[in-house]
C-alpha cells in the first residue's frame, strides 16, 4: 500500500508522515519553502511545489502526481487549505472523501476512521471506501525517521485566483502546547480591560494566558495564537483554569486532555462544569481576586 500525503503546514506534514509511514509507504507533497523540513520523516519522495500556490493549482499538481503514480490513498492535513483541496480532489477524481480524522486504519482496502460527530459531542467510527482523507493536526508527535527522502520539483500551473496582499498576524512567543498551567478567559470577561484583572492570577499560578474563539478572533482581546479549541490550539496542561467560558464542545475539543480542569462561571448550568474537576459558581471578577489572595497566603 502507498499513500500520497500533502500539507501546507510543515509540522502537520511531519505529523501526518510519522503517522502514515507506520502503516504503508508514503510520498509527501508540500510548497518549496517547507520541503527542506520534511525530508527525514520517512517519505520515499518529497514533491516540492514551486510557484504561487492556491487551492486550485495545488489540487491539479496533486492530481497529476496521483495519476502518474500508484497510490491507494491521498492524505491531506486538515487545515483550511487542506479541506478545500480535499473537496476539490475528491470531486475531480471521483474518490470518496472523509475529513477531520482523529484516527485511520486500513482494513482490506477499506478505511476505518474516527472523527467527531454531532458538533463534537460524539466520536464516530466508520468503515468506508474513502480514498481522500484529511488528518487532524496533532494526529501524532512528529518523529524523524532514518534516511532522507528523494526530492522532485513540480512547477505549479496557473490559478484562477490572484494574490492581492498577504497580511501577517500579530503573534506572541507563547507556546500553549507546552504550558503546564493555562488560564483561559471566555466571552464572560466582558471587556478587554478585564485582562489586567486576570493577570495577577496568571502570575500566581505561573501560567500562560489563553482565550476562547470569540475572545481571540471576534473581539481580539488576545492574539489569535492564544485560541484554544477545535480550530485553535490543542493543549494538555496539568491545570486548566477556565474563566467565563461556557464550555461549548468546540472549546472542549482543544482542552479535553488537560489533567485537572477548574472552571469559574456565573451560570451554574454552564456545560463547562460537566468538563471540570472543580467548579465555582460566581462572577469571575469577584472570584479571581479571592483566588489570588488564597494562593499567596
Amino acid at each position: 500500500m502507498k499513500a500520497l500525503v500533502y500539507s501546507d503546514n510543515v509540522s502537520v506534514l511531519q505529523e501526518s508522515l510519522t503517522y502514515i509511514r507506520k502503516m504503508m509507504d508514503a510520498d509527501g507533497v508540500t510548497e518549496a519553502e517547507g520541503a527542506g523540513d520534511v525530508l527525514n520523516y520517512g517519505a520515499g519522495k518529497i514533491y516540492s511545489l514551486k510557484g504561487d500556490s492556491f487551492y486550485d493549482n495545488i489540487s491539479s499538481a496533486i492530481r497529476q502526481i496521483y495519476e502518474n503514480g500508484s497510490y491507494d490513498f491521498i492524505f491531506l492535513g486538515s487545515t483550511t487549505l487542506g479541506r478545500e483541496i480535499a473537496g476539490s480532489l475528491s470531486a475531480s477524481l471521483g474518490l470518496q472523501p472523509m475529513t477531520e480524522l482523529i484516527s485511520f486504519e486500513p482494513k482490506d482496502g477499506k478505511a476505518v476512521t474516527r472523527r467527531f460527530a454531532h458538533g463534537g459531542k460524539t466520536v464516530v467510527e466508520e468503515e468506508s471506501g474513502a480514498k481522500v482523507l484529511t488528518l487532524m493536526p496533532g494526529i501524532a508527535d512528529p518523529e524523524p525517521a532514518e534516511g532522507a527522502s528523494a526530492t522532485e520539483e513540480v512547477q505549479l500551473g496557473d490559478s484562477k485566483l490572484s494574490l492581492v496582499e498577504r497580511i501577517e498576524k500579530q503573534a506572541t512567543a507563547v507556546n500553549l502546547e507546552k504550558a503546564e498551567v493555562i488560564v483561559c478567559v471566555g466571552r464572560g470577561l466582558g471587556k478587554k480591560e478585564g485582562i489586567s484583572e486576570v493577570e495577577p492570577l496568571v502570575k500566581a499560578v505561573k501560567g500562560e494566558l489563553a482565550g476562547s474563539r470569540p475572545v481571540c478572533l471576534d473581539y481580539q482581546w488576545l492574539t489569535e495564537d492564544r485560541q484554544v479549541g477545535l480550530s485553535g490550539k490543542k493543549v494538555k496542561p496539568k491545570i486548566y483554569i477556565a474563566l467565563g467560558v461556557s464550555g461549548q464542545i468546540q472549546h472542549i475539543a482543544g482542552m479535553r486532555d488537560s489533567k485537572t480542569v477548574i472552571a469559574v462561571n456565573k451560570d451554574k448550568d454552564a456545560p463547562i462544569f460537566e468538563e471540570a474537576d472543580y467548579g465555582i459558581v460566581g462572577d469571575l471578577y469577584q472570584i479571581v481576586p479571592k483566588l489570588v489572595q488564597a494562593l499567596q497566603s
Binding site: 460527530a117 467510527e125 466508520e126 471506501g129 451554574k268 465555582i280
Partner: peptide, 29 residues
C-alpha cells in the same frame, strides 16, 4: 457506502465538584 461502527460520547471522568458557595470552593481549588 459509509458503515457506522460506533457513535459514542468520549469518556470524561472529571470529578465535577461544583461549589455554589465560593467560600467552600476556593480552598478546594
Amino acid at each position: 457506502g459509509v458503515k457506522v461502527l460506533s457513535d459514542r460520547a468520549p469518556k470524561s471522568d472529571r470529578k465535577r465538584e461544583v461549589y455554589e458557595d465560593p467560600e467552600k470552593g476556593i480552598p478546594e481549588v
